[in-house]
């Protein structure tokens, strides 16, 4: 037993080793650079998928024939892990940032579009009628002044899930992609057997995911729910 632990020692980094790798990584700027590069890709993909998903969802909610054809396809696409698109992406865009951004965006778009579709389909008829009666017309004004805010409780849930999906897709993509990033750091560290840095990166990924969800989206969601009177007021 003791022998095994000793033998596998380098495979299971101690807290001290991990802390050391942490300090070193940040001291030489590599970890920080990776985080920045990953966040950049993540944010680009995230914005694309939120806009695209919301737009698609709106179209599905608005046009039944789209919903009955393409909408069904989206449900199927949603079940495909986005990393499965990477080979295609590499053929189309090459083994570069664009590919990683592509699969990250695709990982979050479908779930966002489903949330947006539900949110917009569930807007009460009376709100739409009230809006048109007050002169919003049927176009853009109605969309951003009434439909978007009315669908917000669903949209924000979609955004939260989309963020989590994007995070996963990004890490998976970066493992294979080239350049600087958290995923690449994982891969590089595996190549040289630097398990302490591996664990560091995993911890960083978990931290960023949790912190952003808790301090950003959860706050936003709670605020909106309270505003809409959907939460029984806290305490």
């Amino acid at each position: 037993m003791g022998y095994r632990v000793f033998d596998w020692g380098w495979k299971f980094p101690s807290p001290l080793q991990t802390a050391e790798a942490f300090v070193d990584g940040f001291a030489n700027g590599h970890l920080f650079g990776s985080i920045l590069a990953s966040m950049r890709r993540l944010l680009i993909s995230f914005v694309i998928s939120i806009l695209l998903g919301t737009g698609l969802g709106f179209l599905f909610a608005r046009f039944r024939f789209l919903d009955e054809t393409f909408g069904f396809l989206v449900v199927a696409l949603q079940t495909v892990p986005s990393i499965a698109w990477l080979p295609f992406a590499i053929i189309w865009f090459g083994l570069n940032d664009t590919s990683v951004i592509f699969i990250t965006a695709i990982g979050a778009t479908w779930t966002m579009s489903m949330a947006s579709r539900t949110g917009i389909a569930q807007i009460s008829k009376i709100h739409l009628r009230a809006a048109r009666m007050m002169g919003t017309g049927n176009g853009l004004k109605l969309f951003y002044q009434v439909m978007l805010p009315a669908a917000f409780p669903h949209l924000i849930t979609g955004v939260r899930v989309a963020w989590a999906f994007a995070w996963r897709a990004l890490t998976a993509g970066e493992l294979i992609g080239r350049g600087l990033g958290l995923g690449q750091t994982l891969q590089d560290s595996r190549d040289i057997g630097d398990t302490a840095t591996l664990l560091c990166v995993v911890i960083i990924i978990a931290l960023i995911g949790t912190i952003s969800d808790h301090f950003c989206f959860k706050r936003l969601e709670d605020g909106i729910m309270v505003r809409f009177g959907l939460h029984a007021a806290k305490n």
Binding site: R129, A130, M133, V146, P149, A150, F152, I224, R227, G229
Partner: peptide
């Protein structure tokens, strides 16, 4: 020039 008051008020909750 015509406005409606609905039974379920129809105010915007946000």
């Amino acid at each position: 020039g015509k406005v409606v008051v609905f039974q379920e008020h129809g105010l915007f909750p946000w």
